[in-house]
Simulated assay, not measured.
Amino acid sequence: MKMLTHYRKKFAVYASAITLGVSAALAVSPAAAQDTFTWKVQSHWPGSSSSYEDSLVRLKNVIEERTDGRLKLQLYESGALFKAQETFNAVSRGILEMGTISPAYAQDKISLAGIASGLPFAFRNVWEAAYFHQNLGFEQMLRDEAAEHGVYWATDKVYPTEMVVKNPINSWEDFTKLKIRSSGALQKFLTEAGAAASYIPGGELYTALDSGVVDGAHWGAAQGASSMGLYEVAKYHVQPGLNIAGTDAIIVSQKALDKLPEDMQKIVKQALDEQFWVRTNEYLYKERITLAKAIAEDGVEINTLPDDVQDRLVKTAQSMWDEEGKRSENAQKALDMLKSYLTDLGYL
């Protein structure tokens, strides 16, 4: 009898311990499951830019939905926290958890930035640039360079960059008289080609074009021009494009990424990989319908550059490509890969 009583007492102790353990687990698990992270995201796009809504807000919604709200993105438009050119450093140092930039804004850190932001007159179709990034390994090369600065790099999309101008370009003389808002490698290219190119932040672009500070500008292509109101003051849409490239990139602080639970890290990376394909294809579709609408409703006209102007621009462009290769061994490797690819396509 005493032995039975002893075992009953011992069982009661074990049962109590198990109950306390389960209770503690239940008390901790919901709290852990509800842990949330809020990332500050500084964009280089003004709120009025089509990509702010279509790229950045889309990404915010996807990540928040797939993490069940555990990771929230607090968005800031261009200039709200930092100047666009300072965003890379802010993300690198962990002051910002995420940002969007043009690769041109990180040229002092990323030797591949000039190639990423688009060598002029290299690709002729968007799929060619997408294949170069994702299938030939250029995206991974960018990611590896950015990692050296504590940054996880993801190209948002590849798309053409096309100018709008206030007066048509009908001759080489017309081109060389232009004052153009530009940035990065294209700014250097347009200047070397004979135009006067200068950088103007997105928030000041419409006023600069309207007041005559510049005669033309590029902000993406048709969607960018339309969303920024540029067609109101510049009725000529110039083709062919200056380049086709990964002109926008999403950058993430590696420190911030490492602090997330493993499942959330995977969600973020998968969302960024998916973003490239969704936005590249969506952009092409919207380009076509946006330009058609601008022609029909806003009186915009296509200004196709004369052959002699195109020939001169191509020669200037190709002479510049080699300069980008001199930035580093990595840049030369990427340039050699690009030239080989263009040769396979029959362009060189």
Results as ranks from 00 to 15, higher is better:
residue 217 A to T: 10
residue 105 Y to T: 09
residue 12 A to Q: 08
residue 144 D to I: 11
residue 226 S to Q: 10
residue 98 M to H: 07
residue 295 I to L: 02
residue 328 S to K: 09
residue 186 L to V: 03
residue 39 W to E: 02
residue 27 A to T: 13
residue 223 Q to N: 15
residue 267 I to E: 06
residue 126 V to D: 06
residue 214 V to W: 04
residue 117 S to I: 03
residue 107 Q to F: 02
residue 207 T to S: 15
residue 179 K to Q: 12
residue 21 G to W: 10
residue 317 A to W: 05
residue 295 I to S: 02
residue 185 A to Q: 13
residue 169 I to E: 01
residue 166 K to A: 04
residue 284 L to Q: 15
residue 103 P to E: 05
residue 246 G to S: 09
residue 332 Q to G: 05
residue 67 T to D: 11
residue 185 A to W: 14
residue 195 A to N: 01
residue 80 A to Q: 14
residue 34 Q to M: 12
residue 191 T to P: 04
residue 241 G to V: 01
residue 272 L to C: 11
residue 81 L to E: 12
residue 153 W to H: 09
residue 192 E to I: 01
residue 82 F to K: 14
residue 220 G to L: 07
residue 192 E to C: 00
residue 215 D to G: 06
residue 271 A to D: 09
residue 323 E to R: 12
residue 63 I to W: 12
residue 128 E to M: 06
residue 184 G to Q: 07
residue 310 Q to E: 13
residue 128 E to V: 06
residue 168 P to M: 01
residue 259 K to V: 03
residue 207 T to A: 15
residue 103 P to D: 06
residue 273 D to A: 14
residue 5 T to K: 12
residue 179 K to M: 04
residue 38 T to H: 02
residue 48 S to T: 14
residue 297 E to F: 04
residue 145 E to R: 03
residue 179 K to G: 03
residue 162 E to G: 00
residue 64 E to F: 07
residue 306 P to R: 00
residue 135 N to A: 07
residue 198 S to M: 14
residue 170 N to I: 00
residue 162 E to V: 03
residue 329 E to V: 08
residue 82 F to D: 11
residue 6 H to D: 07
residue 275 Q to E: 15
residue 225 A to F: 07
residue 159 Y to N: 07
residue 335 L to T: 02
residue 198 S to G: 06
residue 179 K to C: 03
residue 104 A to W: 02
residue 297 E to Y: 03
residue 335 L to K: 05
residue 262 E to D: 14
residue 166 K to Y: 00
residue 37 F to Y: 15
residue 33 A to V: 07
residue 325 G to Q: 10
residue 264 M to L: 15
residue 205 L to C: 11
residue 149 H to N: 13
residue 217 A to V: 12
residue 153 W to V: 06
residue 329 E to R: 08
residue 348 L to C: 00
residue 155 T to F: 05
residue 260 L to C: 11
residue 346 G to L: 00
residue 286 K to F: 13
residue 160 P to D: 05
residue 42 Q to T: 07
residue 258 D to V: 06
residue 165 V to M: 01
residue 306 P to F: 00
residue 36 T to M: 04
residue 45 W to S: 13
residue 222 A to Y: 04
residue 103 P to S: 04
residue 285 Y to M: 08
residue 94 G to A: 08
residue 8 R to S: 06
residue 313 L to C: 01
residue 69 G to P: 10
residue 98 M to A: 15
residue 59 L to P: 12
residue 15 A to W: 11
residue 228 M to E: 12
residue 82 F to P: 09
residue 347 Y to S: 04
residue 328 S to I: 05
residue 291 L to F: 13
residue 16 S to K: 05
residue 212 G to I: 11
